[in-house]
Nucleic acid binder design. Structure first.
Length: 454
RNA sequence: GUGGCCAUGGUGAAGGGGUUAUCACAGCGGGUUGUGGUCCCGUUAUCAUGGGUUCGAAUCCCAUUGGCCACCCCA
């Protein structure tokens, strides 16, 4: 683990087999940066899963799942040694066998690894892949920032044309729109590694000339990753940035044309975007197009408000030992999307399944009848509810109500004797006696599943 | 990684050293053991954990755990 701090292990209550929780023991909580996704939030996650699946199908992307644990060097090489993601946020450890492994902090490196490893370059190009799953970064948690978080993304490998970049932006736009968000994308181009290097030199030269205005932190970044100075949020940098050379002016001809074409496609597809010359992104593998998504209606300006991002990474395949292969992709931060959805549709109560008919019973024999009758309704495809564990009629009727049942079937001792059941209309409050063997049939009739004379 | 704020029932809050810890919502039980959505009643917290100060701590101090904010960075 990246931390060297020695921490006393938590006193876990009742860890020992059969031991009662010790008085005064620290309650067990999720470990830092980890969280539960509770039933109440599941509808949002499901909705996202559906939209991703539909979008993948429509645009011809195939699902891929890569392992959560990879050789740490994959990320060191792929994401970049001096990036924060690798330098301080990698969940990594030595296995008992001495392998140096890490929990995936993002998926692009893994996908490129899989592309190379499985010879996907022999498939019709481009290869379109999508994924969804948990990722891990060992940083300090904040709202919308967890150590385990979920991303869903789309990647296109084996095609260099600008239309791909634009289409990926369009797809991510469609996903966010489909979910009811009002997103806006910031775009920039980082050019080729060569043009970027030239720009970097110019930038370093510029900031050197302003050295007296830089903080210690800035100076460190100037040495390590000068591009990062551009998206600093600190006050004093804002004026400096305005005078600094802009990357667009340093782009080579091809990157410039590529970028122009991406923007033209976006105009054509009416995707709202914002040019952001300071958008550089924290991963080393990006070339040419980069973009990041934000919610347009966002006035609270949280520091970690990006919904997702992506870009082109033409050099990554080669970097990981494959043949040079142009590629691009994006990932959306699902936790943040969910948090937006929750703002939009606050769910205050746990959902209870809506049923057509509810079975109420009184007494042990009636309960047995009801248990069997439940199976019959279920097999007949009629949504049915029960509260067999409750003994009181009142409690069961309350439950029927919560389930929104239109009909209730009541079986008591008397009905068991007669072989009947009471069929109650929950809205009207009227009830009639039916043969218990025909209960399913009667409910079907009431629901209009079969014509009355049948 | 740096600096700061915070932690009270399931949830949201009140209480800022003194005897039964307050409110709302949700939950559960009940209102003459056979009938719901309204209403009424009851019930639900060793005040995150450990230690310290004190006659006395939910309240003050320290540590731990967790959350949050800014930076860093990103999703």
């Amino acid at each position: 683990m990246p931390t060297s701090k020695k921490v006393e292990p938590k006193k876990a209550a009742g860890t020992e087999e059969g031991a009662a929780p010790k008085k005064g023991a620290q309650p067990i909580q999720t470990t830092r940066g980890m969280r539960d996704i509770l039933p109440i939030d599941q509808p949002h996650w499901q909705r996202i899963a559906e939209v991703f699946q539909a979008m993948a199908r429509d645009y011809g992307f195939e699902r891929i799942d890569t392992p959560m644990v990879e050789d740490a060097s994959l990320f060191v090489r792929g994401v970049g040694k001096v990036t924060d993601i690798v330098e301080k946020e990698l969940f990594q450890w030595e296995t008992p066998g001495g392998e140096h492994v890490a929990l995936r902090p993002e998926n692009t490196a893994s996908i490129v690894r899989a592309y190379v490893q499985h010879g996907m370059l022999n498939q019709p190009q481009p290869v379109r892949l999508w994924y969804k799953g948990p990722f891990f970064r060992y940083d300090r948690p904040q709202a919308g920032r967890f150590r385990q978080f979920f991303q869903g993304g789309f990647e296109v490998l084996g095609e260099a044309d600008a239309v791909i970049d634009a289409q990926l932006i369009l797809i991510s736009y469609n996903i966010l729109r489909e979910l009811g968000l009002d997103p806006i994308v910031k775009v920039n181009s980082l050019g080729t590694p060569e043009s970027r290097a030239n720009y970097k030199n110019a930038l370093v030269a510029f900031f050197r000339s302003k050295k007296n205005k830089l903080t210690e932190d800035d100076k460190k970044r100037l040495l390590k990753n000068p591009l990062r100075l551009l998206d600093s949020k600190e006050e004093h940098m804002q004026e400096l940035k305005a005078e600094a050379p802009q990357i667009v002016d340093w782009l080579d001809e091809e990157s410039k044309t590529h970028f122009m074409r991406v923007l033209e496609y976006l105009d054509e597809a009416q995707v709202p975007y914002q040019l952001d010359p300071y958008l550089v992104r924290g991963l080393d593998y990006y070339t040419k197009t980069v973009f990041e998504w934000f919610a347009a209606s966002d006035d609270q300006e949280l520091a970690q408000a990006a919904l997702g991002g992506g870009g082109r990474y033409d050099g990554l395949t080669e970097l990981l030992g494959g043949r040079p292969t142009p590629a691009a992709g994006f990932a959306l931060g699902l936790d943040r999307v969910v948090s937006r959805l929750k703002d939009l549709h606050p769910n205050t109560t746990t959902q209870v399944r809506k049923v057509d008919v509810f079975l109420a019973q009184l007494g042990e024999v009636a309960r047995k009848k009801a248990l069997v009758l439940f199976e019959e309704f279920r097999k007949a495809g009629i949504p049915v509810g029960e509260a067999f564990a409750k003994a009181s009629m009142k409690g069961q009727m309350e439950a029927a109500n919560k389930h929104g049942a239109k009909w209730a079937i009541i079986i008591g001792q008397k009905e068991v004797m007669d072989g009947t059941a009471i069929l109650r209309d929950m809205d009207a409050g009227t009830q009639e006696i039916v043969d218990i063997k025909k209960a399913v049939h009667e409910v079907k009739k009431k629901l209009g599943h079969i014509s009355p004379q049948a």
